[in-house]
């Protein structure tokens, strides 16, 4: 088990390195010129050159890349020669646009994205898996057809549409929910748990409508397949109660693919829900990433890309480990 973890985490680091290199290369050889963007509206060629030096963009590609990497292992120096500043570990550089420390920017944005992701994942798991299971148990009956019908509508609703309609109806017309504020970032804050829920509820719903629909389908199909397994017949032949047959034997066996999907989706969502954050004005990672990418802000884009990649890969490993616990046939070697 220990060697398995070592190998998986080793592979994870390697993969992150590759991702960082690719992102760095794309940016470096891309058409955007961060120096002229950073230098502002009224810019002389002289000042662009100054900005270039200050940002370290005058150095060769590999020097820049290794300087970036060195910030991941320890503190590094930033800024123009003579005006260097110490950047504490972990250093992801400073924003070309605002000169803010990127580590701080991410630390500020992450709680918003976390708030969004955790609530949405809980909501769609409960709704999606619950209704998927119900549909599987009532296969072919009216309940099943209704759930399947509803999920095909949900799956085809894009987030901007659901999001805007939700805002229009529940905030605008009915006034049941307040506009989303960036003051509430945690359920344990001063505003309290209730305010946190109210603040993010519509955003969760917008995400959950889309994802629940997918989870309903995958849960239903998986459970129907599991219910037709021989061991389910054995469970019935033992005289077990319906509840035990469905939950102890059925769900235990049919849940594995859902856990995989959940892990991957959660990982992806933690990297920032771009559309949802835009529509609901949540200043999370997705929101920040879009702003950075459109203004050629390399350090911020790099950092968020790396973080998103980290989450996806990390949850992949987590899913693998979970598998070994769920299914005794999986050998960790």
């Amino acid at each position: 088990m220990v060697s398995f973890l070592f190998r998986r985490f080793g592979a994870m680091l390697l993969l992150l390195l590759v991702v960082s290199f690719i992102t760095f290369t794309l940016f470096h050889f891309g058409p955007a010129d961060p120096a002229s963007a950073a230098c502002g509206q009224e810019c002389t060629p002289d000042r662009v050159e100054q900005a270039r030096v200050a940002l370290g963009l005058d150095k060769p590609f590999f020097v820049q890349y290794f300087a970036f990497l060195s910030g991941l292992v320890g503190p590094r120096m930033l800024g123009a020669p003579g005006a260097e500043q110490m950047c504490a570990w972990p250093c992801l550089g400073k924003s070309f646009q605002t000169n803010e420390n990127v580590t701080d920017m991410i630390a500020n944005a992450l709680p918003y994205t976390l708030s969004l992701a955790i609530g949405a994942v809980l909501m769609w798991t409960i709704v999606g898996v619950g209704f998927g299971l119900l549909a599987a148990m009532r296969k072919g009956k009216l309940t099943d057809r209704f759930i399947v019908g509803a999920s095909s509508i949900g799956v085809s609703l894009p987030i901007p549409v659901t999001g805007l309609v939700l805002l229009l109806v529940f905030v605008g017309t009915l006034g049941w929910f307040p506009f989303t504020t960036n003051q509430i970032v945690s359920p344990f804050g001063e505003a309290g748990f209730g305010a946190w829920v109210t603040n993010y509820f519509l955003a969760w719903v917008a995400l959950a409508v889309l994802f629940s629909a997918q989870y309903v389908r995958i849960t239903r199909n998986n459970m129907i397949e599991t219910f037709s397994e021989d061991f389910m017949r054995t469970a019935r032949a033992k005289g077990l109660s319906r509840r035990k047959i469905v939950f102890k034997h059925g769900v235990r066996a049919g849940i594995t693919p859902i856990i995989t999907m959940l892990g991957l989706d959660l990982g992806a969502l933690l990297g920032g829900a771009v559309l949802t954050e835009q529509i609901f004005s949540v200043p999370g990672l997705g929101f920040t990433a879009v702003k950075a990418a459109t203004s050629g802000d390399l350090p911020v884009t790099m950092a968020i890309t790396m973080l998103a990649a980290f989450f996806i890969i990390f949850f992949n490993v987590l899913v693998d480990i979970a598998y070994a616990f769920i299914d005794p046939r999986v050998k960790v070697n």
């Binding site: 021989d230 061991f231 054995t234 066996a253």
Partner: peptide, 13 residues
Amino acid sequence: MIFQDPLSAMHPF
């Protein structure tokens, strides 16, 4: 009752 294929008739987990 016992069944034809004992591997699939027993719960794998």
